[in-house]
Amino acid sequence: MRVVFRAPHKKEIEIEGEMTLQQLAKKLNFSLESHLVVRNGRMLTPDEVIREEDVVEVFSAVSGG
């Protein structure tokens, strides 16, 4: 799967295999309390399975200054 982080720094990561969003967040060390993950324009709940061929976008909700 391809994981695209939108902010604060745009970066892309390729991950092998399939897993739930909860597992993905744990693996990549981001909090689902402060991020939303979108696949094909729809937000995902933590139990959703992300498959090998999926592209997901991770949006951080924390803004400040």
Binding site: P8, L36, M43, G64, G65
Partner: peptide, 30 residues
């Protein structure tokens, strides 16, 4: 929450600035 406002703009397809002010790095508020 910020996350709920983010959900609102994503659902409604509203464009927004998805980056922080460059001077806010290390701000206590964050």
């Amino acid at each position: 929450t910020e996350r709920e406002n983010l959900a609102y703009v994503l659902i409604n397809g509203i464009e927004f600035i998805n980056e922080d002010c460059p001077y806010s790095k290390g701000a206590n508020s964050i």
